[in-house]
Design a protein around this nucleic acid. Structure first.
Length: 376
RNA sequence: GGAGGGGUAGCCAAGCGGUCAACGGCAGCAGACUGUAAAUCUGCCGACUUCGGUCUUCGAAGGUUCGAAUCCUUCCCCCUCCA
């Protein structure tokens, strides 16, 4: 493990883990949720507002920043932290997700992936070595191995071939990364919904040796039950002395279930994207602020929430902002959702430390079963 | 008074003899969103419906036609220009 990057396991509750990641740029208490700032911005939020929600680390994306504004330019400007004004740690995705999400715009071979830029059509070749180089130029505190996020559905043969390619790329990523002080590299388990493939992938990554281990290729259409099955098989096979990161997950209920299965880190666009598309998360479930029923409702989105949207405004106003397509609507709902996610993580951490995670999970589900607050 | 243009579903607006319950857009009613090609996308949007259809619509009233939002007549409104 690189100097100045350390993971400490503080407590366990069943499979769940309460931990702490130390980086030169700050501490990350786990289980942690990392807001997604793909294009060097958590959309609709200022960095200090992101921090105020309780977030300790954010994501950025290799592929998107490679296209615009370019990693060399960001390096010349002093690195990504200075560029985007985020003082805490940053984790960068390697571009592996775009291998799947932009499948129509790329070709893949052993060396890497050739993307047809969605911005101007230019061809861009991304290899494990170049992805690692870009993440170094950005100054990522945690870099991710370059992988292929396996699509769903995939046959076992397809998932195996994809996983094995990702493992070869993981070895190249590790070799390219070297041992830079204070910076970490995570490997990514693939293998689709096939437990044997996941176990093989986890073993292979353990042999290579990473600072943390991610589970990728989930929440891509397989459904929560299948995802949890994969986690039940995979998490126990991961080293206990390194953080475990479930990539791209998820909805609040996905996170609660994954924490109970031993996951330490999460990222997802849901709180930010949903905030921009009028969906808010509350302690009694998800609410669509576009719906007509909120038009006359002066009550806060979530009575128990301390975010600025809930403290200062009623549902009727948020509804109006959304209807009128006012920017403030996106800002307030994004802030609320990020706050909700961070509050959830804090509650999960406290429950694990107290050994009461099972009770917490039960209460969490019960509150949501009751549904949203009574109509006016 | 003269010349011309126009009245289409909540709004704007296409259509100009059958393939029109009527293109589009907006508004409206819902849904989706999981390592962000997303302030995006999808469905519904005359009435009823067992969702296959059935019924009443295109200013009003007559008429021509197998068939009219589309053609003719009269009437009622609106707009532009000239007096």
């Amino acid at each position: 493990m690189s100097a100045d990057f350390a993971f400490t396991l503080l407590a366990t509750d069943g499979q769940a883990r309460r931990g702490r990641i130390a980086t030169p740029r700050g501490i990350v208490e786990t289980p942690a949720f990392m807001p997604v700032g793909t294009a060097a911005t958590v959309k609709a939020m200022r960095p200090e507002e992101v921090a105020a929600t309780g977030a300790e680390i954010v994501l950025a994306n290799t592929y998107h920043l490679m296209l615009r504004p370019g990693p060399e330019r960001i390096a010349r400007l002093g690195g990504l932290h200075r560029f985007m004004g985020w003082k805490g740690p940053i984790l960068t995705d390697s571009g592996g997700y775009q291998v799947m999400s932009l499948a129509k715009l790329r070709t893949l071979d052993e060396s890497g992936v050739t993307f047809r830029s969605h911005l101007d059509g230019a061809l861009m070749h991304l290899t494990p070595e170049r992805s690692i180089e870009i993440q170094a130029l950005l100054g990522a505190d945690i870099a991710m191995a370059f992988d292929e996020c396996t699509q769903f559905p995939a046959t076992e043969d397809e998932a195996r071939a994809s996983m094995e390619l990702s493992m070869r790329w993981a070895k190249r990523s590790k070799a390219a990364f070297g041992r830079p002080p204070g910076r970490a590299l995570f490997g990514i388990v693939q293998g689709g919904v096939y437990p044997a493939l996941r176990l093989a992938s986890a073993a292979r990554l353990g042999e290579i040796g990473f600072d943390g281990y991610a589970v990728g290729g989930l929440a891509v259409g397989e459904g929560q039950a299948a995802m949890f099955d994969v986690l039940d098989a995979t998490a126990p096979a991961l080293p206990t002395d390194a953080p475990r990161y479930l990539m791209g997950v998820g909805k609040p209920e996905d996170i609660v279930g994954a924490v109970a299965r031993g996951i330490d880190m999460f990222d997802c666009v849901i709180p930010t994207r949903s905030g921009r598309t009028a969906q808010a998360f509350t302690r009694s479930g998800a609410v669509n602020l576009r719906n007509a029923r909120h038009g006359d409702d002066p009550r806060p989105l979530d009575q128990a929430c301390q975010c600025r949207a809930c403290r200062n405004f009623g549902r009727a106003y948020l509804h109006h902002l959304v209807r009128a397509k006012e920017i403030l609507g996106s800002m307030l709902l994004t802030e609320h959702n990020l706050r909700y996610y961070q509050d959830l993580m804090a509650e999960l951490r406290a429950a694990i430390a107290a050994g009461t995670l099972a009770d917490f999970a039960q209460d969490f589900a019960a509150a949501r079963d009751k549904g949203d607050i009574e109509p006016l």
